[in-house]
Every structure is written in structure tokens, then in C-alpha cells.
């Protein structure tokens, strides 16, 4: 059981969350080129090791989180809100 510390809810089982994929993918503007969209939709670096990824706290506060996790060991590092406003609010309050 991977344990993820949601900044809002605290440490929880990963089964409360839904995995959301590579968080380093930069989705282009809606009117960007098909080439840019192809990159974002289909191509992944898929690293063996540290990975920045989205987890959605589906059965919790519903926040989308950016989690640093090692794909080889599943060790979880930093967990932050994906929403920059929330992220900054937490950072300032610490």
C-alpha cells in the first residue's frame, strides 16, 4: 500500500486516490498545433526512478495532487496540490 500524505487530509492509502499520470506533461493551449497536442496526448518519458505524477484524491477531498514517487521503489517524496493557488497558500502558511 503506497501511503500518500494529502496536504489537506493527511496520510492515506493510495487506494483512496486515482492515478492521473505524468505531471510533467505540459498540455498546450487548446488552439495549439496538432504536433504539440500529439506530444502531450501520446508521448511519455516513462522514467524508471523518480517520477512526478498526478494523483486525484477521489475518495477524499477531491484535490488533484502532484506526487513525487519513485517508480522502482514506490517511495513517495514531496506531495503538493496541483492547483498553484492552493500550492502557494500551503507554502506561505508553512
Amino acid at each position: 500500500m503506497i501511503r500518500i500524505t494529502c496536504p489537506f487530509c493527511g496520510e492515506r492509502d493510495h487506494s483512496e486516490f486515482s492515478y492521473g499520470g505524468d505531471a510533467t506533461v505540459a498540455y498546450p493551449a487548446l488552439d495549439a498545433s496538432v504536433e504539440d497536442w500529439n506530444e502531450a496526448v501520446y508521448l511519455r518519458s516513462n522514467p524508471r526512478g523518480p517520477h512526478k505524477e498526478y494523483w486525484h484524491h477521489l475518495n477524499g477531498c477531491r484535490a488533484w495532487l502532484i506526487v513525487e514517487r519513485d517508480t522502482l521503489t514506490h517511495e513517495v517524496g514531496k506531495v503538493e496540490f496541483a492547483h498553484p493557488g492552493l500550492r502557494n497558500a500551503v507554502r506561505t502558511s508553512v
Partner: peptide, 13 residues
């Protein structure tokens, strides 16, 4: 298991 992984072992859920 629904998340990217290179670990050849699974989790309880």
C-alpha cells in the same frame, strides 16, 4: 495496479 511502476511486486488493494 493502476500506477506507473517498474517494481515487480504488487500491492494489497
Amino acid at each position: 495496479d493502476f500506477y506507473n511502476s517498474y517494481a515487480q511486486r504488487g500491492n494489497l488493494p
